[in-house]
Design a protein around this nucleic acid. Structure first.
Lengths: 119, 119
DNA sequence: GAAATATGCAACTTAATAGTTGCATGTCCG
DNA sequence: CGGACATGCAACTATTAAGTTGCATATTTC
């Protein structure tokens, strides 16, 4: 019963999958897009561009970055392209960050114990 | 009792603070650095460079990116500079992602109800 | 069918990022 | 003190990202 060292190792292979997701979220415009699509309602590119100071093409590029990271999904509906949120990747990196956080806490506890034992 | 719409709005001002953190994590080398420092033990730049195929200067730059995002803290100790993890920003964006995730679930529930009512 | 709307594609500019190399400085150890 | 080690600073290159403009195409709507 000597304290389970649950330190589930995070494989580099898995880490690599997170990179494009973090990259997609490392931009204010795209973070705003995500929080805007949070209500589950699909929106067209024009709609999403409307109250922005950016060109439609710039917004389109941002949406493609999000789409390539799997964070949104666009579907043609007539002449417009409707985008909606895809929460899976968000949940994955949240779980990753949660794991890191928990491992950090475990590590601190372990280090503390070590000091007590030695001191 | 018509279903609390707890949709705590996420302020753009707050969102902006997350950008550099996500940016710092949008690189494989830096993600590896974070997971390596997760055990709480400070490590010198040389140590962190050792089993990498990268130059020391490149690694130094990566560490500075992490440091500017508040994710690590470096301190001089004699002739070497020891870096250790600083988990606060990680926890903050985890909480943000958790909020997004929860709002998404709420939104889905709401939409579902709406369909039931109308149908 | 013509006008208005929504989008896609391509070329281009500008700025930022990742990486390199070379050299200078400071610290430890014999 | 002198050599080895650890780091800092600066200049330079190459690649990628963000944004623009212009034009082509498809779809509504009247």
């Amino acid at each position: 019963m000597s304290g389970k060292r649950a330190s589930a190792i995070i494989s580099p292979r898995l880490l690599r999958q997170y990179v494009p997701v973090f990259a997609a979220l490392s931009d204010e415009t795209r973070l705003l897009l995500v929080t805007r699509l949070i209500d589950g309602l699909p929106r067209s590119i024009s709609q999403l561009t409307e109250d922005s100071k950016m060109s439609r093409q710039a917004m389109t590029k941002h949406l493609h970055v999000l789409e390539n990271a799997g964070l949104v999904r666009g579907e043609m509906a007539g002449r417009e392209c409707l985008f909606e949120l895809e929460p899976r990747p968000l949940e994955e990196i949240r779980d990753y960050l949660d794991l890191v956080s928990k491992q950090w806490d475990q590590a601190l506890t372990r280090l503390k114990k070590l000091v007590e034992t030695e001191g």
